[in-house]
């Protein structure tokens, strides 16, 4: 079935079964491979991207649910890797294997859009992505750095 998708501001027409998970359309059809597959059952968050600014686990969202909405993936976060969260991630040298980090960054951006200066409790409640390398310690510090730079820029993402 042909469907129109808007991903990172670009319209695509894809012809897939409507129940196909958004993740696989993004990765295999649109070849945006920054968004990762790990568990396939909405447990880990490696596949996190945004639909209309809300982080979702794209392995468990049918592509049909994204029709008519704005999808943003890690590739669309900034043209050159200079989103405040990406800069903070580089400053703290967060990634180890890096496999979870696209999803992690998208979750954090989603949180900071709603709460530009989140408390530890909010971070704990909202950032439920898994990182098998356990980079959590630097992630929390990097969220602080990103929040500070967002507030220096005027407070909103």
């Amino acid at each position: 079935m042909a469907m129109d998708l808007t991903v990172n501001g670009v319209r695509h027409s894809v012809d897939v079964a409507p129940e196909t998970p958004l993740l696989w359309v993004i990765r295999d059809q649109l070849r945006l491979t920054g968004t990762k597959f790990t568990c396939g059952i909405a447990q880990c968050g490696a596949c996190t991207l945004h639909i209309d600014d809300r982080p979702v686990r794209s392995c468990s969202v049918p592509v049909s649910a994204a029709v008519g909405k704005a999808v943003t993936t890690i590739e669309g976060l900034s043209p050159d890797g200079t989103h405040p969260v990406q800069l903070a991630w580089m400053e703290l040298d967060v990634p180890q294997c890096g496999y979870c980090q696209s999803g992690m960054i998208m979750s954090v951006v989603g949180l900071l859009k709603r709460r530009p200066n989140p408390t530890d409790a909010e971070i704990d409640a909202e950032i439920t992505n898994a990182c098998r390398c356990s980079t959590y310690h630097r992630i929390r510090k990097a969220i602080r750095v990103a929040a500070a730079s967002i507030s220096a820029r005027g407070g909103a993402l």
Partner: peptide, 20 residues
């Protein structure tokens, strides 16, 4: 700082799963 990190915050690092 690790030289692979910039590619891992932009989703451009290539893992085996990304090969087309």
């Amino acid at each position: 700082k690790n030289l692979d990190v910039p590619s891992k915050v932009t989703g451009t690092a290539v893992y085996g799963i990304d090969v087309h």
